[in-house]
Amino acid sequence: MKTVIKMREMSDNQEGIIKKISTTGEMGRRIREMGVVPDTWIQIQGRAPLKDPVAIKIRDYILTLRNNEADHILVEIDEPG
């Protein structure tokens, strides 16, 4: 079953498809120009020692974002069970 959650809530190594970016202004622009746009596949690569920032695999490279930035990215995942 598919469900949409915030990127912050994803667990390590989980993958999903970006559905929406709910932020504008500088943050929205910076995120988008790095290729974070709807319908893109991503996978959580890991988190820094203090659990923030988060590193994701996207479009053949690794991107890091802070948790408060990841809050604005909605991702569709396969819900287990």
């Binding site: 500088e26 943050m27 910076r30 995120i31 790095m34 920032p53 590193a55 490279y61 690794i62 991107l63 890091t64 974002l65 802070r66 930035e69």
Partner: peptide, 10 residues
């Protein structure tokens, strides 16, 4: 705070 949107290059 500026966004920490940063690439981790290979």
């Amino acid at each position: 705070k500026t966004p920490f949107v940063m690439e981790l290059p290979p």
